[in-house]
């Protein structure tokens, strides 16, 4: 995994929950240095989620910036009743989905992701070599977002339906579609789900 210099420095920060709480409180009071520390602590997790949702490194970087720009204004909404990382993941997912909706109209004109030839052209490989991350990124957009939110982030289909403005049943269908595609791509296509 490639890491920029800032990320290497970030990896050296391993705060206890107590210090993280102090950092959050300082940032809530408007301390930009504390907010920067918060960014360093969580940028890896936020970017990972943005990247899996958008399947595009550039968009994921833009979405990550958008998350931390909006988070500055939303920080006082965090009451401390849940884990900060859990709350941040929820904020990240919602902001990224909103960002993707805004980008969609323009990007769709440039590339038709749903019917992308690259997406169709995935040959099953030896199972020991399978890179699930790469296969997830090749899933069609709606199936990928549902798969990431349900299988990786642990959201229920009802919650995903609300986030993506669609019925819970549609979310289930998209999840099934994602699994079917992964199954074929992983070389399990002769087995019923």
């Amino acid at each position: 995994m490639e890491m920029c210099k800032a990320a290497i420095n970030d990896a050296q920060i391993t705060p206890t929950p107590h210090t993280e709480r102090q950092i959050i409180e300082a940032a809530q009071r408007g301390d930009k240095q504390a907010y920067r520390q918060l960014y360093r602590l969580h940028t890896g997790k936020v970017f990972a989620l943005c990247y899996r949702l958008t399947a595009d490194r550039g968009m994921a970087e833009d979405a990550t910036q958008e998350v931390f720009i909006q988070l500055w204004q939303k920080l006082n909404n965090f009451s401390g009743q849940s884990k900060f990382s859990t709350w941040l993941h929820s904020v990240t997912a919602n902001i990224t989905l909103s960002y993707m909706r805004k980008q969609k109209s323009w990007f769709r004109r440039m590339v038709n992701f749903e019917e992308s030839a690259a997406m169709q052209d995935v040959s099953p490989r030896c199972t020991s070599e399978i890179d699930l991350e790469a296969l997830i990124l090749r899933l069609p957009e709606r199936a990928r977002v549902v798969f990431v939110l349900h299988a990786i982030e642990g959201y229920r289909h009802e919650e995903i339906g609300q986030m993506m403005k669609m019925a819970a049943g549609t979310s289930k269908a998209q999840f099934h579609r994602a699994k079917q595609l992964l199954k074929v791509w992983m070389g399990y296509d002769d087995e019923a789900i």
């Binding site: 995994m1 890491m3 940028t43």
Partner: peptide, 25 residues
């Protein structure tokens, strides 16, 4: 089922973090 088991194993092994190439700060 083998696929479900294999998928779960792969999902559990996914990294929780990934760093952007550029400094976004």
């Amino acid at each position: 089922k083998p696929f479900e088991q294999y998928l779960k194993q792969k999902l559990d092994a996914l990294p929780t973090e990934r760093q952007p190439e550029n400094d976004l700060w």
